[in-house]
Amino acid sequence: MTAKKFWSWLAVAVAAVYFIVPLAATMEFSMRMRRGTYSFDAYRSVFSDQRFAETFSYSVVMALITIVVGALLIVPTAYWVRLRMPYLRPVVEFVTLLPLVVPAIVIVFGYLRLYNSSSVLPLTNSDTGTNILLVFGFMTMSLPYMYRAVDTAMRTIDVAVLTEAAESLGASWTTILFRCIFPNVLTGVLSGAFITFAIAVGEFTMPSLLNRPAFGPYLALIGANKAYEPPALAMIAFAMTWVSIILINITTRLQKGAAGAR
């Protein structure tokens, strides 16, 4: 083994230890609920908790709504900016980056100030209204990732020429968008969707301050009151993130052939 290879492998090993040791420790601790032996009691306890099912399913539904609404907002926006208003791209890119620098707590306080019960649009007056607000919040937080994923996917196809080809064949704008453009940026939409899913399911600040029964606040509550269930929940959350990453990879590979030919 050459010296260069040795150092490369050493770097990989150090990185692996950095990532794996805390995970292994968390996993190990989550399995020590039963004294003197390893067991999945903590996981059993988590899964048998009614609130786990309720909060998790609530967060999943909110995440799915966020993904659908987000895709319907971002795909046409990215398409239009690329096709007709390329001069607006720097502005749109800047706006989509803002959620990275504006903390979630600031965003949610802004929402509460704008949409409280005494405002013109009192969304916080009802559960449905507050849920809508939460979806908007999740959409805002996932904007940097969703927009970039979709925009990058659009870069791999010639949006202008495909649009003109479809137009010359008699297609309307909705047909062009949903039958010619959307399927070709599906990889980007799915990548953005998985990241959005991970953000929405694990988010604490927004649902907590909007008082919604979401998975994030439940994680915090359990973490503050129990010993073995929090690491079990952390492992479950990690698993969900990994599944999302694996799905991103699979969808990217599935469309790689087509992208390569463009």
Binding site: I157, D158, V161, L162, E164, A165, A166, E167, S168, L169, G170, A171, S172, R179, C180, P183, N184, L186, A258, A259, A261, R262
Partner: peptide, 20 residues
């Protein structure tokens, strides 16, 4: 008249086939 109302066939330099 909009392009989609003209019934004009067009072939582009970059083929412009729908990849999907």
């Amino acid at each position: 008249l909009k392009p989609n109302k003209r019934n004009i066939g067009m072939v582009f330099q970059a083929y412009a086939l729908f990849p999907n």
